[in-house]
Amino acid sequence: MALWVVDHTAPSEEFTSLLDKVESMSGESLSDLPKVNIMSNFLFIFTSGTTGLSKAARVGHLKAVLSMAFFEMCGAMSEDIIYITLPLYHMSASLLGIGGCIQLGATCVLKKKFSASQFWKDCVKHDVTVVQYIGELCRYLYNHPAVPEERAHRVRLAAGSGLRSDIWRQFLQRFGSRIKIREGYGLTEAGIGFLNYTEEVGPIGRAGYFNKLSMPFELLRHDPVSYEAVRTPAGRCIRAQN
């Protein structure tokens, strides 16, 4: 992995400075520029393979930009110190996490590998104010033996997806009721996402007014066994009841 800093000099040999190289570039216009717009391919990212073999999913520039706004929508600010322990090959850590820190201009504390025993110690050590979670990470923390740092931290916001309702309240009771949980839901392949901004325990989120306006959608009835859409005799999908 290459580490770049937006400066004229690098703090150590592990980093590469960027501004000095930009200023030394030729001012001549490039020929044969690729035709890129907001809907063009940004990257192809491999899904986790939850419903089958892992596959490459297309992510366009628009989705990348929207993903980078996740932390800001959750209430994070440029002054925050954000702790990320998730693997960077996952969209949550790369686009929502690292991308979100870049979009905010916030400080990112990037852990090489998640450790339940070191989690709260790292939060205290680096003065972390925002943490990112996914799946059962919060349950792993709750099941781990207590450490003094779990009540001495300054974490005010936990943002992510996959937090089950049975651990939600227990997590807050043990690690601090001042922590705001922002539970979201989205898919690498999907074009929409949901965010629980009401702090109601359990729901995976809501679609706000601007979300519905910019990316209209409908929720459809489906078979929980086959995961196929339920259709009318005419073959049309059926809208789910609110």
Rank of each mutant, 00 (worst) to 15 (best):
M1F: 06
L3G: 01
W4C: 12
V5C: 14
D7F: 06
D7L: 04
T9I: 11
P11V: 11
E14K: 14
F15E: 07
L19G: 01
D20F: 04
K21Q: 15
K21Y: 11
E23G: 02
G27R: 03
S29D: 12
S29G: 09
D32L: 05
V36G: 06
N37I: 05
I38R: 12
S40K: 10
N41S: 10
F42H: 13
F42K: 04
L43T: 13
L43W: 02
F46M: 08
T47D: 14
G49L: 06
T50Q: 04
T51C: 02
T51F: 08
V59N: 04
G60S: 15
H61S: 00
K63N: 10
A64D: 06
A64H: 14
A64G: 02
M68V: 00
A69W: 04
F70Q: 10
C74D: 06
G75I: 03
A76N: 07
M77F: 06
M77V: 10
D80W: 11
Y83C: 11
L86G: 03
Y89S: 11
M91R: 03
M91Y: 06
L96Y: 05
G99M: 09
G100N: 09
C101A: 13
I102L: 15
L104M: 09
L104C: 07
G105Q: 07
A106F: 00
T107M: 08
T107F: 01
T107W: 00
V109H: 01
K111C: 11
F114E: 01
A116C: 07
A116Q: 10
Q118E: 14
F119H: 00
F119S: 00
C123S: 06
H126L: 01
D127V: 05
T129C: 05
V130R: 04
Y133H: 07
Y133I: 08
E136M: 09
E136K: 15
E136V: 12
L137T: 15
C138I: 08
R139K: 14
Y140K: 14
L141H: 00
H144C: 09
P145H: 03
P145E: 03
V147C: 13
P148A: 02
R151P: 00
A159G: 08
G160K: 06
L163V: 09
L163S: 05
R164P: 00
S165V: 02
S165T: 01
D166A: 04
W168Q: 05
F171I: 00
F171M: 00
F171A: 00
L172N: 03
R178I: 07
I181A: 02
R182V: 15
R182F: 05
Y185N: 08
G186A: 15
T188V: 13
E189M: 03
E189P: 07
A190C: 15
I192E: 04
I192R: 03
T198V: 08
E200A: 13
E200R: 14
P203W: 08
R206G: 13
R206N: 10
A207T: 10
A207R: 14
A207W: 04
F210W: 13
N211D: 15
L213R: 08
M215A: 11
P216F: 06
P216I: 08
E218G: 05
L219E: 11
L220M: 12
L220E: 06
L220R: 08
R221C: 12
R221M: 11
D223H: 09
P224L: 06
P224W: 05
V225S: 10
Y227L: 15
E228W: 02
E228Q: 14
P233K: 07
A234I: 02
R236G: 06
R239F: 03
R239S: 11
A240H: 13
A240W: 08
